[in-house]
């Protein structure tokens, strides 16, 4: 368990890594909208091509990206089967006499659905989870939502709590592992026995974990108090986020991409949903 970075952040130096996290968030949302705009084969071909280019730009190994798909394989398979068997169309592929009827349209729909979900996941991975640290992401969210402060939404406080929670996850993971090892060294057995026995065996882990988490939270609160933390008002930040020309360019580019997809749809080349 040790050294598992929380989330999936993959450290590298790429154009996408260097982008402003706010810009990345906006671009990610717009790009996902693009995937839903696509309705014909040509559009999907362009979309796939763009995803390949983005993957190359981000310098993330393909293997890592594909790994995020693994938990979805079942859902993908299930929905594409439903698409294949239950879409009615004009081009029947199976003989008339069969009870189960498969239409060409069903296969196209299944393919589009798979591509859409795959690219949607890949895009969130490329723009957000793999290239942006969780802390940068909460920072970006805080700033993007800061207009909501006007209507008394505690944006800063929520962002602060989120980043503290995120920061504590690896700490608690490490601590859990440490305590589990300490109890294993005293002969604790977490693997054998029925459900109740196993749950009971975890008690020697949870109690010290809870006690130390409380202590940690207390200490953190004290440390924040000592440094006169008083919430978001008038607070400056250590890392000021800057929109650069390249960030603006990326946003313009993704909007242009969306417009392009929109017109390609109208051309109606290839199968259209």
């Amino acid at each position: 368990m040790k050294n598992i970075a929380f989330g999936q952040y993959y450290p590298a130096d790429s154009v996408i890594h260097r982008m402003d996290p706010r810009a990345k968030l906006i671009v990610a949302v717009l790009y996902i909208v693009c995937t839903f705009l696509c309705t014909n084969a040509l559009c999907f071909a362009v979309l796939v091509l763009s995803a390949v280019v983005l993957t190359l730009l981000s310098k993330i190994p393909l293997r890592l990206l594909l790994r995020t798909l693994r938990p979805l394989i079942f859902i993908l398979a299930f929905t594409s089967l439903i698409n294949i068997f239950f879409t009615k169309g004009e081009h029947l592929l199976t003989p008339e006499s069969w009870v189960v009827k498969i239409y060409l349209e069903g296969i196209w729909n299944a393919l589009f659905m798979i591509l859409r979900i795959t690219i949607l996941l890949a895009a969130t991975g490329i723009f957000l989870s793999f290239t942006t640290t969780p802390i940068a992401l909460t920072d970006a969210l805080e700033q993007l939502f800061s207009p909501l402060k006007k209507i008394r939404v505690p944006v800063h406080e929520v962002a602060m709590m989120t980043s503290i929670a995120l920061r504590f996850i690896p700490l608690l993971t490490e601590e859990t592992e440490k305590i589990m090892n300490a109890q294993k060294a005293r002969g604790a057995d977490f693997q054998s026995g029925g459900l109740i026995k196993r749950a009971k065996a975890l008690l020697p882990v949870f109690i010290p974990l809870l006690s130390s988490a409380m202590k940690r939270a207390d200490e953190l609160a004290n440390a924040m108090d000592c440094r006169c933390y008083h919430g978001g008002e008038g607070r400056t930040r250590l890392k000021v986020l800057h929109f650069r020309a390249s960030d603006v360019a990326a946003m313009v580019l993704v909007v242009a991409f969306g417009v392009g997809i929109f017109f390609l749809n109208r051309l109606g080349i290839g199968y259209t949903m």
Binding site: E175, I179, A182, A185, L203, P204
Partner: peptide
């Protein structure tokens, strides 16, 4: 094995 800071293992 007595780990580092073993007082955290008391429960």
């Amino acid at each position: 094995l007595v780990m580092q800071y073993p007082e955290y293992q008391l429960f």
